Simulated scan of single mutants.
Amino acid sequence: MYGPLWRALPGPWPVKLLLVVALVVAVFLLLMEVVFPWVSTLMPYNDVAV
């Protein structure tokens, strides 16, 4: 999976490394800001009553 991604990125290896780091950061931020808050509203542990 990572080999085809690495070969698809343009430039020499330092540029590819920078692009991979940017992609990882972008995916992380997308998960933390959009996906996880949406999923947490669907979880049943928000309606806890003791």
Score class of each variant (00 low, 15 high):
residue 2 Y to F: 14
residue 3 G to S: 07
residue 3 G to Y: 10
residue 4 P to M: 13
residue 4 P to A: 14
residue 4 P to T: 13
residue 5 L to C: 11
residue 7 R to D: 15
residue 7 R to F: 09
residue 7 R to K: 15
residue 8 A to D: 03
residue 8 A to H: 11
residue 8 A to W: 06
residue 9 L to K: 14
residue 9 L to I: 13
residue 10 P to A: 04
residue 10 P to D: 13
residue 10 P to R: 00
residue 11 G to I: 01
residue 11 G to Y: 01
residue 11 G to R: 01
residue 12 P to T: 10
residue 12 P to Y: 05
residue 12 P to E: 13
residue 12 P to H: 11
residue 12 P to Q: 11
residue 12 P to N: 15
residue 13 W to N: 05
residue 13 W to F: 08
residue 14 P to L: 02
residue 14 P to A: 01
residue 14 P to Y: 01
residue 15 V to G: 02
residue 15 V to N: 00
residue 15 V to M: 02
residue 15 V to I: 00
residue 16 K to A: 00
residue 16 K to D: 04
residue 16 K to P: 00
residue 17 L to H: 04
residue 17 L to I: 05
residue 17 L to K: 00
residue 17 L to D: 01
residue 18 L to I: 03
residue 18 L to Q: 04
residue 18 L to A: 06
residue 18 L to V: 02
residue 18 L to S: 01
residue 18 L to T: 03
residue 18 L to K: 02
residue 19 L to E: 00
residue 19 L to I: 04
residue 19 L to N: 02
residue 19 L to R: 02
residue 21 V to P: 01
residue 21 V to F: 02
residue 22 A to K: 05
residue 24 V to A: 10
residue 24 V to Q: 14
residue 24 V to L: 10
residue 26 A to G: 15
residue 26 A to Y: 04
residue 26 A to I: 08
residue 26 A to L: 15
residue 27 V to E: 10
residue 27 V to N: 10
residue 27 V to T: 15
residue 27 V to P: 07
residue 28 F to C: 11
residue 28 F to T: 15
residue 28 F to R: 15
residue 28 F to A: 14
residue 29 L to H: 11
residue 29 L to V: 10
residue 29 L to S: 06
residue 30 L to W: 08
residue 30 L to A: 08
residue 31 L to I: 09
residue 31 L to Y: 02
residue 31 L to H: 04
residue 32 M to Q: 13
residue 32 M to L: 13
residue 32 M to P: 06
residue 33 E to K: 07
residue 33 E to D: 01
residue 33 E to W: 00
residue 35 V to W: 08
residue 35 V to P: 05
residue 37 P to N: 01
residue 37 P to F: 00
residue 37 P to V: 07
residue 38 W to G: 10
residue 39 V to G: 07
residue 39 V to L: 12
residue 39 V to C: 06
residue 40 S to I: 10
residue 41 T to F: 04
residue 41 T to A: 06
residue 41 T to P: 06
residue 42 L to Q: 10
residue 42 L to W: 02
residue 42 L to G: 12
residue 43 M to Y: 04
residue 43 M to Q: 08
residue 44 P to V: 03
residue 44 P to D: 03
residue 45 Y to N: 15
residue 45 Y to P: 09
residue 45 Y to D: 14
residue 45 Y to G: 12
residue 46 N to S: 11
residue 46 N to T: 04
residue 46 N to H: 09
residue 47 D to V: 05
residue 47 D to K: 11
residue 47 D to P: 06
residue 47 D to Q: 12
residue 48 V to N: 09
residue 48 V to W: 10
residue 50 V to P: 07
residue 50 V to R: 13
residue 50 V to G: 10
residue 50 V to C: 08
